[in-house]
Design a protein around this nucleic acid. Structure first.
Lengths: 120, 120
DNA sequence: GCTTGACTTGGAGTCTACTCCAAGGGCTAT
DNA sequence: ATAGCCCTTGGAGTAGACTCCAAGTCAAGC
């Protein structure tokens, strides 16, 4: 039987707080893990994997509601819906990258401009 | 004398609502524009330029507080601070692009995986 | 057997960024 | 001169995502 981890260990691994982990569990973003002595949460490697994928979605500005919908579809093994939701997210990611790049060019231009003022 | 625009025209141009424009003005993100008959706002081309740059920062997840700080530094002609704030934002943009790209690869992999299931 | 420390729950509070509302003013067309 | 519409203000309300708190449980060490 493989190792299991307490909520504070997971918190440290993921950079989330125990409160946030419990909050995500409450709203159905992560599965309710097994419990140890006194009802304390014990996370498995599989749980951790799900949390990491969740963080990938969250870190790319997917709203928790959409992540919730994806998790629900995943649990219901609705591959059609999973596919559609991920595809939509892919499009949003690409749009976001384009916006970031556009602003990056503008910011770089301004930074060069400041540099000139300093040099001149 | 060049053309001026009402708040609803600016709203249409920028995709913001008049309420949001007034809110941005209230918290100091955009300058208070000149007023016309009955105290209604009249935006100049210069105002519009500032709003568009603000939107670039906002669309790249710069918190309004940081934008506020930048605008304040800009108005105070504190070039040193302007430079530092933009440089920090550039770094955040690049980090964000890296995170997006990483997730994009994962999402693409998953999408290909779904595709195989459909094809197979 | 009592303290210490991490854990549990449900619920309330906070922060950011809006979003809406009530009460009222002013231009335009009929 | 009245209807219709867009504008004004200050302030209250909302949504999303946490974040904190009180009261209590449990196991381990002294």
């Amino acid at each position: 039987m493989s190792r299991q981890y307490s909520i504070s260990q997971i918190a440290e691994q993921t950079g989330l707080t125990p409160d946030t982990l419990r909050y995500y569990e409450k709203i159905g973003l992560i599965p309710s893990p097994g419990r140890g002595a006194g009802g304390s949460r014990l996370y498995t490697k599989e749980d951790i994997g799900k949390i990491h994928f969740l963080l990938h979605l969250k870190n790319t500005e997917m709203p928790l509601k959409n992540i919730q919908e994806y998790i629900k579809a995943y649990d219901a093994q609705d591959e059609e819906l999973c596919y559609r939701l991920l595809e939509e997210h892919r499009i949003r990611i690409e749009a976001q990258m384009a916006a970031l790049n556009e602003t990056l060019q503008i910011v770089k231009y301004k930074l060069d401009h400041f540099q000139e003022i300093k040099d001149g």
